[in-house]
Amino acid sequence: MKRRARVFGHDITLDEIHPGSYFSLDEDILIQGLMEGVEPGFHETVEKEDIIVAGRYFGMGSGRESGAWAMKLAGIDMVVAESFSRYMFRNCVNNGIWPIEFEGILEHVSEGDMLEIHPKKGKMILEDGTELTFKKFPNWIIELIEENKVKEDK
């Protein structure tokens, strides 16, 4: 299935992904905070199954899981970045979101591109049909992600 890429730059921090002022257990407030520190109004344009694409060190700074929660609530279950902060990686895994590492991804993808990604196979097909491969996740991480995706979807 092809999905729309929403592209961000390098060094996007958690305070940009989800500013502390949107910390809440109210789902509407949580969603409103998504990407608000870097692209105000993102929550109005994001659609279920969009893919977040970012550069180096996605999610540095705070470990607040509300960022991953907001993504989950918005229907995002894949993030492709050149690298992740250790908090963002773990918080994605724990919320059933695939944290896919791909060196140089920003050179291949532009805002709005339609991508086809097979996270378990380590395969990605770009808008122009180019096929790229990335390092597969260890099986126990795949199990954790799938288990958490089911748990959250309940």
């Binding site: 921090t13 958690l14 305070d15 940009e16 500013p19 502390g20 002022s21 608000e36 520190g37 870097v38 700074g61 705070s62």
Partner: peptide, 9 residues
């Protein structure tokens, strides 16, 4: 410790 955009208003 932090001066990220979105912090402190």
């Amino acid at each position: 410790n932090r001066n990220y955009a979105g912090r402190m208003g």
